[in-house]
Amino acid sequence: MTDGPRIAILLATLVAMLAAACGPRRIAGPSRPGDGPSRPGDEMIVLLRDSEGGTIGRARVSNPSGSTDLAAARDATQVAENEPPGPANTLSEADVQRIFGGALSALPPVPRRFTLNFRFESNELTDESRALLPVILNAVKERSVPDVVVIGHTDTTGTPEANFALGLKRAMTVRNLLVEAGLDASAIEVTSHGERDPRIYTADGTPEPRNRRVEIAVR
C-alpha cells in the first residue's frame, strides 16, 4: 500500500472539515447522503461491487420493524433502532469514499485460489498445472505475511480412510514442489479433505479426474 490514497483521504477529510467550518451555513436544501443530523446509533449499510471479477452480490438488511434489499452497486440503506431500514438509494463513488474510505483502504489483498490436477493414477502434475507453479509463487511473494494452505482431494474410489491418506500424499507432493521452487516451508499448511469435498458430486466408488486435485489457497 502506498501513501498516495491515504494522503488523498486525509486531504479530502481536511477539505471537508474546512468547508464545513468556513462555508455558508446550509439552512435547508438537499443534503448529501450520510450528511444529515446523525443520531447516536444511526447506521448506513452499502453494497459494493466485488473487487475481483466485478460481480455484484445482494444483501438484505432487516430488523424487527422491516427489511430492505440491496441489489445494485452502491445501493445503501440507513437504519436507526426501532425503525424499519430506510429505502435503498444509490450513493455516488465519492460518497462511498468519503463515508467508508477509512475502512475500504485497510482491506487486505484479494486471496487467490489455484487448482492443480494430476495425471491419471499418478503423483505427476499435468502440464497445465505445472505451468501454474510460477504464478502461485508470485502470488505468495506479493504478500507481506502470506498464508499458504495446500489441500489434497480425491475421487470416491476406495475407502474414505485410504482417500484421506492419498489426498495428504498429493498435497505433500505439491508442498515439496513449492519448497523446491523457493517457498518458506514454515509458511505452508498441508491438509487433506480426502473424498469429502469433491468438485463434482458423484456416487461412491466413481472415478472422476476433476476430483483428483490439490487446491492451493494463498491469502
Binding site: D42, I45, V46, D50, S51, E81
Partner: peptide, 20 residues
C-alpha cells in the same frame, strides 16, 4: 450484525457505518 439490524448476504462486498 449491527446494533440496529442484521445483514444477510449473497456473495458480496459491503461497507457499514455505525455512529457511536
Amino acid at each position: 450484525e449491527t446494533p440496529a439490524a442484521i445483514v444477510g448476504v449473497r456473495g458480496t462486498s459491503l461497507a457499514i457505518r455505525v455512529e457511536p
